[in-house]
Simulated scan of single mutants.
Amino acid sequence: MKPYLLGLSAMAFAGSMTSAFSADVTMPDPNYATATAVMNVIKAAAEQELGLQISTVTTTAVPVIWEAMDRNKGEVDIWPDTWLPNQQGLVDKYVKDKKSVKLAQNSYEAQQGYCVTEVTYDKFGIKNVSDLANPDNAKIFDRDGDGKGNIWIGAPGWQSTNIEKVRARDYGFADFFNLEATDEAISNATLDTAAKQDKPWVGYCYGPHQNFARYKLKFLEEPAYDAAKFVVVQANEDPQWFEKSKISSAYAKTTVHIAYASSLADRQPDLVAALERMQFKPDDVSKWAYSIIVDKKSADEVAKDWIKANPETVSKWFGH
């Protein structure tokens, strides 16, 4: 994500749904730029082409989003930021087993892992994830003087954040670092300071993302993906998820999909047909996020500008 979230409690999320029920369709806004951008493109296109009223609810709780889609009551109808393999457990439960949620057929490729700033890579020689398992190397990333490094592992509640807790343990560097699970905006500010001051920085990275256009970042090398070494137990499925998960390889090939409540096909068949045709380009998603974060444009403005500049693409989505 990402994006995988947990910023609002289920109760707070449910409370925010009251106004959403009056709309034709409801989508969640996870409040990070890439997903917010895609959500706004879908929203603006559907409103323009189908005349729908689409409401949004702000939440960073991915399991709660899936539970809402599962109920098929219009609380959440579309989730446009389904990262696989990160959300595979949720897909298995709701798409494959319960069949209460569907995945649109198209997706776009993404990348995730650990990133460092250029100076970290070139000057300090941190090039492989194994380099983090050295306590002397870890001290390079010490920002608060406690003798331990600082590494951002994702936002609270992201599925990937739980994965990164396990990977830190199994890669052998957890004891040498403060594992920071904070809002992405905090991490971005820390990265910005480090990049401008040519200081070391390391953290979980995913792309498409605006940071690859803003800074010179490099992914750390990792052991190639191995299914036998990438065993994830979902936190919402087993209280011993951390102990039972075993992860010591890179992520599998990562793709991002649109998920939608199964009942939407009956309530809004033209919209579902469009969701099945939609195909996003990683470069476009990065540019949208850059416009939101760096150029300070509203996500709605960014979406409508792109739609205006790409009428043929939008027309194909809606079968015109």
Rank of each mutant, 00 (worst) to 15 (best):
A37L: 08
N178I: 06
D170M: 04
G207H: 10
T255R: 12
A228M: 03
A261Q: 03
D192P: 02
G154H: 11
E49L: 06
K98A: 15
V166N: 05
L191I: 09
F173W: 09
P28V: 07
V57P: 05
W83M: 09
A44Y: 04
A61K: 03
P282Y: 06
A250E: 14
F124W: 15
V119Q: 14
L84V: 08
H209P: 08
Q53C: 04
S298I: 00
E243H: 01
M1G: 14
L103E: 11
N40G: 01
Y171D: 12
I293V: 12
S248T: 14
I42N: 07
M27L: 13
E222A: 08
F13G: 10
E180H: 12
W66S: 05
T56D: 09
V91R: 04
V202S: 08
K296V: 00
K199T: 10
G7Y: 11
L220E: 09
F13H: 11
P85T: 00
E221K: 15
M39E: 09
V272E: 07
D144L: 05
Q88P: 00
G147Y: 01
Q105F: 03
E109F: 10
Q159E: 14
D70G: 00
D81I: 08
S130W: 09
A189E: 13
E184D: 14
G113F: 13
A12R: 15
G157V: 07
Y114T: 09
T58C: 07
A259F: 02
E222K: 00
M17Y: 03
L5V: 14
L6I: 11
K196M: 06
V119W: 06
E47V: 06
S263E: 12
T82K: 04
G15I: 13
L217R: 07
K304P: 00
A23V: 08
D97S: 13
S291K: 12
E276P: 05
F141H: 07
F280P: 00
K73G: 10
I258L: 05
A37P: 09
K165A: 08
V314C: 03
N162A: 13
S263Y: 14
V256P: 09
K218N: 10
K123C: 00
K165D: 07
W241E: 11
S160A: 15
L52V: 05
V101C: 05
I126P: 02
L5M: 14
R71V: 13
L264Q: 11
Q105E: 15
A299W: 03
L132W: 03
D183F: 10
V166W: 12
L8E: 13
S107G: 01
P269D: 11
R71K: 13
K296C: 00
R167E: 10
L6Y: 15
I247N: 06
G157D: 02
Q48D: 13
I42W: 04
P135A: 02
K99L: 02
R277W: 01
N72H: 02
A35G: 12
A138T: 07
